[in-house]
Design a protein around this nucleic acid. Structure first.
Lengths: 165, 165
DNA sequence: TTATTTCGGTTGTATAATACATATATTATC
DNA sequence: GATAATATATGTATTATACAACCGAAATAA
């Protein structure tokens, strides 16, 4: 392989720590059932809906990088809980447009608040610049992931593709 | 309890980005089956064994924050694949001591190398100081998780973990 | 000593999240 | 109107997980 790559050690650390972070997070997910907690995918899904307003099942699947069948089931689960509503698209009978219910909004905000509380606790002794910097790094990494995946994929409305320099 | 906490915005970003990161990672996990890829828990488990040499099932469970039954099954799965070996402790017949096989070492290194390749790609345009800093932040966050778990005792019905050391 | 409790681990069972293959219904195209 | 493409849903399988019940070994109590 080519060599203009960053040194192994830092990357190795990052890779390892991300594995651990994910495991930790996963552990929290299953263990602590704060009543207002939502599983990660549901949380992300509701979050997208909060931001985007209304999305199709397919769009949700794409955003979450889920198989559409999985997304479909997730939507149904959320629907059964009354957190989202599906309305048929008047112009295309195949499409289900998914949007938040009032209840869904509230549950999302509650879950968000619960997560924030947890993170505020975990990060309570971080300086503000460190927090900002860390957040920026995470964004950057996620963006890299996103681009790696969407190298040559069809776009969705609202897509921002920033090619970096 | 509002004052001595860091500002919401950065934390909100971090929390959200970590959710996304985990989802991305999860997606990679199921999607790309590089032959040398190991699932996250197996990878972490082998990694611990690389570092620590030999561990009991219970220790692995604790490190990975898995229920011991899950750890037990994981160990068995790895054993069936020939990646670890269980040897009975001569002094305590209850204990299984788990260690890597030669094959396990090789598979771990291959998986690690594969992961590193992926991350090198994703992070190829990061500066070295940024990488180091990001790694340090991740370590710090994981450390906070670790401490949060090991300091506060979340009461579980029936079983309370006594930390008498 | 024997009886009981604790401990490390395994196995039974349940659940959740997921993907892949297939089905269905709707729209588009020929 | 027949066929193809599309959006979603359903059938089925897999995987990772936890909890509960259990088992055998060790430690402790009687």
């Amino acid at each position: 392989m080519e060599e203009p790559f960053p040194p192994m050690d830092a990357i190795d650390l990052i890779q390892q720590q991300i594995s651990i972070l994910i495991r930790r997070s996963e552990s929290e997910r299953t263990a602590k059932q704060n009543t207002d907690r939502l599983d990660r995918s549901a949380y992300l899904m509701l979050g997208f809906l909060v931001n985007e307003g209304t999305l199709t099942v397919g769009q949700l699947a794409e955003f979450l990088q889920l198989d559409i069948s999985t997304a479909s089931r997730q939507v149904r689960a959320l629907e059964d809980k009354g957190l989202v509503a599906r309305t048929p698209d008047p112009r295309d009978g195949r499409i289900s447009r998914v949007s938040l219910t009032e209840e869904g909004q509230q549950r999302f905000l509650a879950a968000k608040s619960s997560r924030l509380r947890r993170y505020r606790q975990l990060l309570s002794d971080w300086s503000e610049p460190d927090l900002a910097q860390f957040g920026a790094y995470l964004v950057r990494l996620n963006q890299a992931y996103y681009e790696a995946i969407h190298n040559s994929s069809p776009e969705q409305p609202g897509e921002r593709k920033e090619a970096g320099r």
